[in-house]
């Protein structure tokens, strides 16, 4: 669709026993764009995410991830942590921080692999070589930059679990950004946020897209949240793609309206397939 295609999903199908959670889904996400996957509850959005980040192995399909200047990698064959190393950062629907560790430590852990190499797998670190301390200071600088941006710099030494909900959400995004991803995947980032917080979140996401030049893929079930920040929207219903395109186009797509509002005789917005993780 665009020149700098980051992620291409082709014919993705995921079955759990007899239940088809996603069937034959194809779409792509580009660098420098915010791509949103939306759909009613139970449409299979989180399942798509879990396939992308290696928590599920797709039944059928190819997931090609191409970072500029690197060989394409095929995510459907990789372990979760290798996918993260390839450049996909993610957040979770129910926030997964390291609650007993400090805010700063959360951001330093995100830079684990670089620091591990700098510490020569702990040897240089144990001997106290300056090589490691330089890398550590750099990591702290990066963490400080993100703490500044999400407005938590004065809470750097607090326990992450003590922070208010909205701050935890932003911290989780900052943590994912500290792992220097090429594609940032956000699972319902606005869930549980009030109007102000979700406004600030939109600001942050736009800022990340414009200044970091990375792609953002986000899941949301609330259409109003995504309409004004997304460049590209994919709509799912019952595991199938029903619409794909610019927000203005998607908004007026009769099938999308039907999926969200239902038809006259079958008005049920929360039609959820039983047992389907959302």
């Amino acid at each position: 669709m665009t020149i700098n295609e980051l992620l291409r999903v082709e014919h993705l199908t995921m079955r759990f026993g007899g239940l088809v959670a996603i069937s034959d889904l194809s779409f792509s996400a580009a660098q420098g764009e915010i791509t949103a996957i939306i759909g009613p509850n139970g449409a299979g959005k989180t399942t798509v995410f879990n396939c992308l980040t290696g928590f599920y192995k797709p039944t059928v399909g190819r997931l090609t991830f191409t970072v500029q200047g690197k060989q394409p990698v095929y995510l459907e064959r990789m372990d979760g942590f290798r996918i993260a190393r390839a450049g996909i950062g993610r957040t979770f629907q129910n926030i997964r921080l390291f609650p007993a560790m400090s805010v700063l430590e959360n951001l330093i852990v995100a830079q684990h692999n670089e620091l591990m190499r700098a510490s020569l797998f702990s040897v240089a670190g144990l001997l106290g070589l300056s090589r490691y301390y330089d890398a550590e200071n750099e990591a702290i600088e990066l963490a400080k930059k993100w703490l500044d941006r999400i407005g938590l710099i004065s809470d750097a030494d607090r326990q992450a679990g003590e922070l208010p909900y909205g701050d935890q959400r932003r911290l989780e995004i900052a943590r994912a950004m500290c792992s220097k991803p090429a594609l940032l995947c956000l699972d319902e980032p606005a869930a549980g946020l009030n109007r102000n917080e979700s406004g600030a979140l939109n600001e942050l996401l736009r800022d990340i897209r414009d200044t970091q030049g990375i792609g953002i893929l986000l899941i949301e079930h609330d259409m109003s949240v995504v309409m004004n920040i997304s460049d590209h929207i994919v709509v799912l219903d019952y595991g199938q793609k029903i619409s794909d395109g610019f927000p203005t186009v998607v908004r007026h797509d009769p099938r999308v309206i039907r999926a969200y509002l239902g038809e006259e005789e079958d008005y049920d917005v929360d039609a959820v397939q039983p047992g389907l993780p959302c």
Binding site: T53, G54, F55, D79, G80, F81, R82, A84, R85, G89, R90, F92, R96, L97, F98, P99, A100, M101, E105, I108, V109, A110, H112, N113, M116, R175, A176, S179
Partner: peptide, 19 residues
């Protein structure tokens, strides 16, 4: 720090590229 992070949340560790 990775040990402690693993104690806190293994899934989050994977998503950050920790083996």
């Amino acid at each position: 720090r990775a040990w402690e992070a693993l104690r806190e949340d293994e899934i989050a560790c994977r998503s950050l590229g920790i083996n």
